[in-house]
């Protein structure tokens, strides 16, 4: 018996969410008195994940897996779950993992809970806590049956080192023909994505127009942050759809969320609720966002942001 995690890699390196999943799996394995197995596609250093308590790595090298294909990847993970006799399978909430998760749930005949934020509240019955109503509430969900699939919300558990020595085994699943294929990818490789970012700098209609985003980009660069925006900003085409965060956009579970010229409508707040620390910069002291934030500055973004950039540059040069 084991717990299986699908450990995502980017250009061969494990992503941070893979380490977070491993940390979660290790804590759960300690409770369930079992081991942790990871399945990974072409990791260059498979043993890197042993630091987080993974006992065994199933390394998959099939050439057909070079580009992501949800169906094929679900087949791989499903076969890895059978091979490792895993009763619990864990995934992250990356776009790819959310894509393949429901396919995998059906293949494994597993009960599935997404957006899980903590270790199970009990193992028998098996109950997990997950976010519902776009972060406006939590639900306690009981997973029945003898195979369970869980996707863990980003940043919900954090990284916990518990080094073990991992055994690496080459795993050769059989993959069926697919009638769907990737014909192109359009991805900025030099930019931090909202999904990966520890810090997100977000701006709203208070910025007046797309030509004013230079300072937002600069602030993000200084902080190593991703940029985001409110819904009207993307609806008006000032910024791309991919940056729209909120209840109907992307969720943000960053450590630090900086909201500039955003009023703090309920639909916006719902999507960024699970970020740990929120800073608001707004001219209007009555803006609802101040009620939902940890730190606030009442002021004009066109003065505050450039000043903050200069001060952060000084801070960074002294603290690096």
């Amino acid at each position: 018996m084991s717990i299986l995690i699908y450990a995502e890699t980017q250009n061969g390196s494990f992503s941070k969410s893979a380490f977070e999943l491993a940390s979660y799996a290790r804590a759960l394995a300690n409770e369930m008195d079992t081991s942790v197995t990871a399945v990974a596609v072409k990791p260059t250093d498979p043993k890197a994940i042993e630091l987080y308590g993974v006992n065994k790595v199933l390394q998959v090298n099939n050439p057909s897996l070079t580009t992501f294909n949800a169906k094929s990847y679900a087949e791989v993970i499903s076969q890895a779950a059978q091979a490792s006799n895993s009763s619990v399978v864990l995934l992250s909430t990356s776009a790819d993992s959310k894509f393949l998760a429901p396919l995998l749930a059906i293949k494994l005949k597993a009960s599935y809970a997404s957006n899980v934020v903590a270790l199970p509240m009990s193992l028998d019955p098996f109950v997990v806590k997950r976010t519902v109503f776009t972060n406006k509430a939590y639900g306690m969900t009981e997973l029945s049956g003898d195979r369970r699939l869980i996707s863990l919300s980003k940043n919900a558990f954090g990284l916990v080192e518990q080094a073990v020595s991992a055994e690496v085994e080459v795993f050769e699943p059989s993959i069926s023909e697919s009638t769907q294929s990737v014909t192109g990818v359009d991805k900025a490789s030099d930019k931090v994505t909202i999904a990966d970012a520890e810090v997100v700098v977000s701006a709203g209609r208070g910025l007046k127009g797309p030509e004013n985003w230079g300072m937002i980009e600069t602030l993000a660069e200084v902080l190593g942050a991703a940029t985001a925006c409110s819904k009207p900003v993307s609806d008006m085409g000032w910024r791309s759809h991919g940056e729209h965060v909120g209840q109907t956009g992307k969720p943000v579970a960053a450590n630090l969320y900086i909201a500039i010229g955003i009023s703090g409508a309920i639909q916006h707040l719902a999507g960024i609720n699970s970020s740990k620390v929120k800073v608001v910069i707004n001219t209007d002291p009555e803006a609802p966002f101040f009620k939902a934030a940890d730190y606030g500055v009442v002021g004009d973004a066109f003065e505050v942001v450039p000043a903050l950039i200069e001060k952060l540059k000084v801070f960074k040069s002294q603290n690096s």
């Binding site: 509430a137 939590y138 029945s144």
Partner: peptide, 28 residues
């Protein structure tokens, strides 16, 4: 496969700390 029969609302947020716009070093 799954049943959800208990809900909870997030804990209310603690008070905000306000920082003067002319004292951004404090924010940092």
């Amino acid at each position: 496969k799954t049943t959800t029969n208990k809900f909870e609302k997030p804990a209310p947020k603690g008070a905000i700390t306000m920082v003067d716009k002319d004292n951004l070093d404090e924010l940092i």
